[in-house]
Nucleic acid binder design. Sequence first.
RNA 1: GGUGUCGUGGCCGAGUGGCUAGGCUCAGCUCUGCAAAAGCUGCUACAGCGGUUCGAAUCCGCUCGACACCUCCA
Length: 493
Amino acid sequence: MQLFKHQPIKIYNSLSGTKETFKPINEGYVGMYVCGPTVYSNVHLGNVRTFMSFDMIFRYLKHVGYKVRYVRNITDAGHLENDADAGEDKITKKARLEQIEPMEIVQRYTVDFHNILNTFNFLPPSIEPTATGHIIEQIELIKDILNNGFAYQVNGSVYFDVHKFNETHDYGILSKRKLEDLIHNTRELDGQGDKKNPQDFALWKKAEPQHIMRWPSPWGDGFPGWHLECTAMSTKYLGDQFDIHGGGMDLKFPHHECEIAQNEAAKGQSPVNYWMHANMLELNGQRMSKSTGNTVNPDELLSGNNKFFSKAFAPSVIRFFMAQAHYRSVLDLTDDGLIASEKGFFRLMDAINLLDGLKASETSSVDINTWKQKCYDAMNDDFNSPILIANLFEAAKYINQVKEGSETLTKEDAALLKTTLHAFLFDVLGLENVTKKESGQDKLSGAVNVLIKLRQEARANKDFAMSDKIRDELAEAGILLKDGKEGTTFSLL
RNA sequence: GGUGUCGUGGCCGAGUGGCUAGGCUCAGCUCUGCAAAAGCUGCUACAGCGGUUCGAAUCCGCUCGACACCUCCA
């Protein structure tokens, strides 16, 4: 189904600062690259939000029929903590602290990353390349950049010559910075060492003898610069020029700026047509930061084992909460916010679960096709999931109204409503119907139905003491009874 | 200091030059043996001050405030 032919998508392009109609290089195919995590510690929720935004975008592009190659890398090469010549890289530092091999650190936190993402129902990317697996490609790139005169070699290291590059190209085109401003505003850093100018960045760094993560190169043993791996891996799998490159807002400068510069220097063309940047996640109005303690891990949020939140939240509730904000807005994670989202989420799910039991009518009093297009319009407008969700709540209202008898649906419209809702909730937003199991044919539901029947009998006999006892004690056990015109149903929590 | 983003009702969070998302909360009503759930109704906001306009929360300027980046960071 090539829905995309009728559903033109607009994407906010950070490069132009405007929303542009998305036109892939090859019709029907999309190449998308997203900067993945550096695996030196547990993923934090900010990472999760960024990757979740792109997971949703990946899902929607697939939903409208694009064949998407989604590449998200793992940074495992161990870059320096700062651009100075001295100092350990993050992975080595962690390895020393934990007294294990750097590659053990990489393995441990890569596994953690995958576990967390699976818990949140992420789709795996099409390709998940690692920096250490692409050293040769990175070395080749450096050779190209050197040959084209945009880099220089000093003491076993190779640096990108930003000033030289800026003479013929525009360094700062993405982040809207001017090189001269950067020159004036660069802080005094220690150990700028071999660099001709502080704005230059490393393509290859010489490894000191104690440096464990090292590879041979034409310039001696060393390791690649941070910005280089993304250029190497994105172009290897997506071509010298590809459709979408995403990442967190904080990577815009210098990381993405440097990627553009590297690609132009090596291959003579700008690599990416649409740059997308996801905004930051805050915790109680403050930036999440390990140093100030204003941080919470995904598993702490899921388990409720933390000092910021009053209870545990299901992965889908957190997903839903995040989808209620636009990916380009700052989102503040709060207890109240999550609780409000949780209630809304379950209301939505309860409505979905009513769909199969609805009575069909001869005519429909609501226009499902118009509603459906509004859902697409929302996502087509730079993936506006909050608007989409507003429309999904409208659908939930229809469903409840049909159940009440104030609106009607034909069998066909009910089916269309159902497939559309499922597509957006589960395929696009990646949510999971956490109440589905309970309302199904399982043993719990059989047992609860027996109690519901007993309660009905008690009520028929006006034995309200007994009927209320059943209801209240079930409630205490976390099972909520809901009396309706068509009988009693229940839900958990 | 520089660059950029933003400041929306009790809270969260969309959005557009005029027709005033959505969720949560709150109040009233309907339904109910009573509740709960659901439905209906109400609460009408856009930091402040100027300007452009027939008309601005939406465009421009200034002020105040917040955040991000400029240094590893999703």
